[in-house]
Amino acid sequence: MSDSPEIFDAIIIGTGQAGPSLAGRLTQAGMTVAIIERHQVGGTCVNVGCTPTKALVANAYAAHLTARAADYGVMLPGPARIDMARVSARVAEISGKSRTGLEGWLGGMQGCTLIRGHARLESPRTVRVGDRLLRANKIFLNVGGRALAPKEIGGLAEVPYLTNTNMVAMTEVPGHLIVIGGSYVGLEFAQVFRRLGAQVTVVERGQHLIAR
């Protein structure tokens, strides 16, 4: 374990939506930057958030239009079938291209060093990643988020359940999907899987959907 720190002008922990753009602005200003990622470059948005969910929305919209083809005077030989494995593969391909593009951008960015690993703050100016010790006067946290499974839902820990992370990778359409929570994210998934052929029930404990 090295005690001699590598010196940078700035350290960014996390390559989510803000991280690469911030690295770009800082390096353009002549600063040296270390950007650290412990999992997949692109963070939540690229890998389990905006990019894959919007790709799923597009697939579901195509299924919806196909089901209504006769309304537009387009006559098909029979009802459409959903190949969820191909839907999932398309979603993964789109996310993968975005991730590869970000990796290429960061890798070719002059003055930027992409470091893979788990970052730990050791002092107000130092960060450790494995055996490497990094030092900078500016440290930015861009660590994203993960799905919260509410502990107050009785029995949740005893049953398998889905979150946004594994829903975007499903290879089968569920026969019946129960969505707990009527927020915009829950309703987006509800519409997607209804259009793909699942029966869907939305459970919301508040008086209104999309309460906030």
Rank of each mutant, 00 (worst) to 15 (best):
K151E: 11
H39A: 13
T163R: 10
L148V: 15
A89S: 07
G101H: 12
R86I: 00
P160S: 12
L106S: 03
S4K: 15
H39T: 14
A92L: 09
A80P: 06
I11Y: 04
A69W: 07
G101V: 06
G19S: 07
T163Q: 09
V74G: 07
Y72R: 13
V143G: 03
K151W: 04
C50L: 11
I13W: 02
E152V: 13
C50S: 09
V127W: 03
A169N: 08
R132H: 10
V200Y: 04
V57S: 05
A10Y: 00
V91C: 02
L141I: 14
T171Q: 13
G78S: 12
G117V: 11
L106K: 03
R135C: 08
T15K: 03
H208N: 13
D9A: 08
I180P: 15
V143Y: 00
I94V: 14
M170T: 06
P77F: 11
R132Y: 09
E6A: 11
L156C: 09
A34P: 05
R132D: 05
G117Q: 08
D71M: 15
S123D: 05
S4E: 15
T53K: 15
A190N: 08
T113D: 07
A190V: 11
G175I: 01
G175M: 07
A85Q: 00
Y184A: 14
N142K: 02
F140L: 09
I210K: 13
A211E: 14
A92N: 03
Q199Y: 10
F193V: 12
E188F: 04
I36C: 04
S95I: 00
L209P: 07
D9G: 11
S2M: 10
H176G: 09
N47R: 02
A60K: 01
F189H: 05
H64N: 10
N59S: 12
G108Q: 11
L187P: 02
P20W: 10
V185E: 11
